[in-house]
Write a protein that binds this DNA or RNA. Structure first.
Lengths: 212, 212
DNA sequence: GTCTATATGCTGATAGAC
DNA sequence: GTCTATCAGCATATAGAC
């Protein structure tokens, strides 16, 4: 049984999109922070500049002091968010421990019901659905970074196979299975408000574990 | 190894949302069919009535002959689409075969790269993201039917456990794990255009199979 | 730094012609 | 059955006041 550890907490920080820490001016960060929340509830087209401004406590026109357009806000958010998963995998890869342990910590971070982790999945969803209605630039960036987590995960799988903890098989296919599952759990969590016995990290690891 | 069978093909028909077969008048069906496609690309707010009309080869105003509003179109689509997964599970449950066999056929139908199956996942995605921007009635209906596939799947799991093919454990948790995974693969497929070794039914079944 | 006012364009929905 | 014309409302982005 894997328990929430110091490693997992550090990992979650890497996972999260990092709007807070970024080097923005005050108004800029304030607007970004609220824009993330509104966009993830209403989508790109459904979000009106007025919604973001009101949420952040500014007037509608003030938003244009910091951002050129609605597309601009969205694209900057997409750029920050789409780096999260890859960052988390790279962070996990360089922790000390066996490969399967590190994969376990990573999985806990991904599946955390923490609100910032959930926000990540909401944003990923946004970037995957209604793709003809989101800015091209945002799409480009998110597509560009899409392979990052998978590529960084493959060495971990190979290590795990060499250590005898991970099943044999094409590492790329195993990585895709892993991320499909993790993403699916993230999505499932978003779809319901009821407290249900969602798959734990241990269950997800059954996909990879030898003698699962 | 499970191969595409007569069972799987029948199953896919149950899975698919059934806009074609439904008892609509000609213009009505024509519009619905195109509306599904446009909505799934542009989302609810991003889709303009003109887009649907043009796609179906009608004038903008003509759409209102059959549909009261944009919400009306979307809600009717949501109603048809949100029944698909439950229908497929119920169909699978009453096939002849061991539980794990029937689950295998079902999984093949869910993971089929068939365009109508993909459309199902695109619509599910639409109903799960930007939820503050889709009609309340559509949300209500889709939420109402959300539990159907899981409820219908649980007896299959229990059967499989009794037959010794499925791992022990809370059947609800196993069902949630299964649907998370299936959904995750559907989503992963939508996210990329490249031909990648996406998890097959056999890989998904590792989550459930005893001595996987 | 922050707000108000406004121009400009688009969209949903209706009415009515053919 | 199908289209054209049109209205009323709203949203983005800008200009300029304080």
């Amino acid at each position: 049984m894997i328990s929430i550890s110091a490693q997992s907490e550090q990992l979650m920080q890497a996972f999260q999109s990092g709007f807070e820490q970024s080097s923005f001016s005050n108004g800029e960060r304030q607007i970004m922070l609220h824009a993330v929340e509104v966009f993830s509830r209403k989508g790109f087209v459904g979000t009106k500049i007025k919604d973001i401004a009101q949420s952040a406590g500014f007037s509608q026109g003030y938003v244009y002091t910091y951002f050129k357009s609605k597309e601009d806000i969205f694209t900057r958010i997409a750029a920050l968010a789409s780096g999260g998963a890859g960052r988390a995998v790279r962070y996990a890869a360089q922790l000390r421990g066996t490969a399967i342990e590190r994969i376990g910590w990573l999985t806990e971070a991904f599946l955390s019901p923490d609100s910032l982790a959930m926000q990540h999945w909401r944003l990923m969803l946004l970037l995957s659905s209604a793709t003809d209605a989101i800015p091209d630039e945002a799409k480009r960036i998110s597509k560009e970074r899409q392979a990052e987590p998978i590529e960084a995960f493959i060495p971990l799988i190979i290590e795990g196979q060499n250590e005898g903890d991970v099943v044999q098989g094409d590492p790329l296919m195993l990585a895709l299975a892993y991320f499909s599952m993790v993403q699916g759990v993230g999505l499932a969590r978003l779809q319901t408000t009821m407290p249900l016995p969602f798959p734990t990290a241990e269950v997800v690891l059954r996909l990879l574990r030898k003698n699962g």
